Simulated scan of single mutants.
Amino acid sequence: MKRPRQKTYPLMRTPIHTLTNLSRETGVELLIKRDDLNGFGFGGNKLRKLAYLVEEAKDKGATVLLTYGGVQTNHGRMTAAVAASEGLKCCIVLMGEEPEERTGNLVLDGMFDAQLVYVGADESLEQVTREVMDRYEASGEQVYEIPLGGSNSLGVLGYFDAALEIQEQLQRPVDYLVHAYGSGGTYGGLYLGSRVLSNPFEVMGMNVLYPPSERQKLIDSLMPVLREANERFELGVQIRESDFNITMDTVMEGYNLPDKRTQSTVLRVARKEGIVLDYCYTGKAFSGMLQKIETGEIPKGSRVLFLHTGGSPGIFSEGHLEAMKPRFSGGGSK
């Protein structure tokens, strides 16, 4: 394998522990890997990808990291945190209208001194991005552009490494490794890593981004990244679409919409294990995993590792707070 340079962060190797109460309730041995605890900007899976991307940015002489996301992007928040730690500027191009007040990740973006540029429904993302980059370059800055979610052939190495790390940490093998599928970089890295390790566990991606009818669009986005990473870093993996285990309907009512089933799952995990999931990513993925246990697709007695990819600041966004109000009305909870 050809391995590029990677930034080392002190807490990036995250712990795995058992979810004791939920294991007892479900009849499945549930473990959780805590990538929400990796020490930067409220944590999350993007740090592993950024560890490679920021080194390439510095090698190219970048002074600004520019990336994209929804208005409450976790990836943008983590990019801003990493940029701050490296003495770089950060610009986040946000796909949506500017809210009346900052909540959730937007508060943290401001703390990390990121420039926020909003792209309205009647504007072109490409045109706005080009104008922003031109302004930076005209003032003497060097811009390094990071794709949505940090999910390119270099970024996926973060979760290639995570697959190897998980294999080292586990005292006994697991049957399934479950996580939220968004921009595809986390799944892609875990898939490649598991293949290099001769498939010690089944990687299950729970879609939280694409409408269920757009599976082919998801595959068409994932495959070129996997092929480029495989060739670029000489991984020697046979990539087959038939090997992918990605559940589409876990997006429920749509991306970042806190449906009732996901709300109930988030509260269940909080009240049984004291662990906070979010309504956009981890809550939907965990809910999908529980449903597979209930239907027997994940059989009783299985050993399952859930990857906590972070995202907790999104709980404090305006839309999610509003959705949860009925759960806590009258001073109680439901």
Results as ranks from 00 to 15, higher is better:
R268M: 08
T8M: 12
D59R: 15
S264P: 04
A80T: 03
G155W: 07
T79L: 13
E126D: 15
K89E: 08
P10N: 00
F160M: 07
Y281W: 03
L37N: 08
R13N: 14
S153R: 04
G314C: 06
V304M: 01
L192N: 07
N245K: 05
S302F: 01
S333G: 02
E165G: 00
K272Y: 05
L148E: 09
S153V: 00
V276Y: 08
P200H: 14
V237S: 03
L164A: 12
Y136C: 01
F112I: 01
E55Q: 15
T8I: 15
A81K: 08
R34S: 01
E165W: 04
K2W: 06
E86V: 05
F328A: 10
T309G: 01
N21I: 14
S312L: 12
K325F: 00
P147M: 15
S333Q: 09
T295P: 04
L235E: 05
I246C: 09
E101F: 09
G61D: 12
E145C: 04
Y181G: 11
Q115R: 10
I293Y: 08
V143T: 04
Y144W: 04
R240K: 15
K272G: 05
V304P: 05
C280Q: 10
V196L: 10
V266M: 02
V208K: 04
E231D: 14
R172S: 11
I219W: 06
R102C: 00
C91H: 06
F244N: 02
L88A: 03
M95C: 13
M223A: 11
E123V: 11
E97A: 13
E131V: 12
R240T: 09
M206T: 10
H17N: 15
N199A: 09
V251P: 00
R5V: 15
L257I: 12
Y255S: 01
L170N: 03
A138F: 11
A285H: 02
G120I: 08
L164K: 12
M133E: 11
D259W: 01
T14D: 09
G283S: 07
K334R: 12
E202W: 00
N21L: 14
